[in-house]
């Protein structure tokens, strides 16, 4: 069982990812935006972070940068559904450059979610 922090501003997607992970017996904390995610992260450092990239407030890319700065070798999965100004491929490439270990383009299946977690865990 791992402690997983899920950060996404989309309430349904956040809920569905949480349910999938809980069904797999993980302990899940969920944050509705980047600021809340960072607060939770600082309070109780998780084993894995799964974060959206485009969010209101502190964006996913900034969160990844900050978390990697705070904790070395942190398994981070970056999710993205694309953006208005750049493709999700670009967003995910940037996320990887900043330290995310696995990329998860939205929409994804449960199998793809767990594959990404496995990649992030190394």
């Amino acid at each position: 069982m791992a402690h997983i922090l899920v950060i996404d501003d989309d309430v349904l997607l956040r809920d569905v990812v949480t349910q999938m992970l809980e069904k797999d017996n993980h302990y899940v904390e969920a944050a509705c935006d980047g600021d809340e995610g960072l607060r939770m992260f600082r309070k109780n450092t998780p084993d894995i972070v799964i974060t959206d990239i485009i969010m209101p407030g502190t964006e996913g890319l900034e969160i990844i940068k900050e978390m990697v700065r705070l904790v070395d070798d942190l398994p981070i999965v970056a999710m993205s559904g694309g953006g208005r100004h750049s493709s999700y491929t670009n967003n995910l490439k940037i996320a990887k450059a900043l330290g995310a270990r696995a990329m998860l383009p939205k929409p994804f299946t449960r199998t793809e979610l767990f594959e990404a977690i496995t990649v992030a865990m190394g």
Partner: peptide, 21 residues
């Protein structure tokens, strides 16, 4: 396509996820 992809992919993500659950 670029404008709706973010929102649309999120919506589809929920549909797929809930359907699997």
């Amino acid at each position: 396509a670029a404008g709706i992809s973010h929102d649309f992919n999120n919506i589809l993500g929920s549909i797929i996820g809930y359907a699997e659950l």
